[in-house]
Amino acid sequence: MKAAEANLLILPDCGNADDDHWQSRWERKLSTARRVVQDDWNCRNKTAWVERIVEAVEAAGKPVVFLAHGLGIAAMVHAAPRLSPEKVAAGFLVAPVDVEDGLMPETADPALAPLSRDPLPFPSMLVASRTDPACSFEAADELGHAWGSFVIDAGDAGHLDSKSGHGPWPEGSLTFARFLSSIRRA
């Protein structure tokens, strides 16, 4: 699959992605990428976040590929049972938040926990750091394997955001391109 053949739906973390974040950069660079905009970027309402994702998938004219980061992943996991398998091609998941270990921002809706351990109904790749303050690598690895994701060890990379120096994130772009090329649609 090529990026032009998909609707790339960007699901930012709590607080949204700043202009230097890799998600914002990719949104500007990839013509089929668009952010799923939330009314409240402080993650106060799980139901509203999930509903926005479901609406965006239903409105998509091409197969959807998620570009999810942080709590955007949690919202996507909660939305997954409501998504048509025919509409969602894949998920590229980066730096999950361990919602069950008290690592969510104080503003976040406690209903984001727990996360389902059921396999995702679409192929996915999860990129996790060994030094992410929001999730241990072991917890991310466990989530990824439960979801059926191919797990990538990003090493000492913090939360894989602009604060950890991953604004441009060329390694991520290459990893995403390889992942996308592995997706086959009927």
Rank of each mutant, 00 (worst) to 15 (best):
I73M: 07
V37Q: 11
A80L: 12
V50D: 02
S181Q: 14
L93D: 04
G15R: 15
S84K: 10
T107C: 04
R178D: 14
D98P: 01
D101Q: 11
G91V: 07
S182C: 03
D18Q: 04
L180Q: 10
A186G: 14
F122M: 13
P12C: 10
S129T: 10
L8N: 06
R25I: 15
L180D: 03
H145P: 01
R184Q: 14
P63A: 04
E51T: 15
R34N: 10
L67I: 14
A4D: 10
C43N: 04
M125G: 02
P121E: 02
L103C: 04
D39V: 05
V50F: 01
E55D: 11
N16T: 09
D101W: 03
G15E: 06
N42A: 12
P63Y: 09
P63H: 08
D98A: 10
L160T: 03
G91L: 06
D132V: 14
W147Q: 03
P119I: 01
N45T: 12
L9P: 11
D101T: 06
V64E: 08
K2A: 05
N7W: 07
D19P: 04
K62P: 05
D20S: 13
S136G: 15
A4E: 15
M125E: 10
H69W: 07
D109Q: 02
L174H: 13
S164A: 15
A79P: 10
V57F: 02
W147S: 03
A4C: 04
I183H: 07
R34V: 12
G172C: 03
R130W: 09
E58L: 08
A146E: 01
L11N: 00
L143F: 15
A113L: 02
A74L: 12
E106P: 03
D161A: 00
D101G: 13
G72Q: 15
P123E: 00
L9D: 11
G91T: 05
V50E: 00
R178S: 14
D20E: 14
E5G: 06
V65E: 01
P114S: 03
S162C: 11
A111L: 06
E5V: 07
A68T: 09
D132G: 07
T107I: 05
D156N: 08
A146V: 06
L120T: 07
A177K: 14
R184S: 14
D40L: 11
K62M: 09
G172Q: 01
L67H: 04
T131F: 09
N16I: 06
D98R: 04
I152H: 15
D19K: 12
L8G: 01
G72K: 15
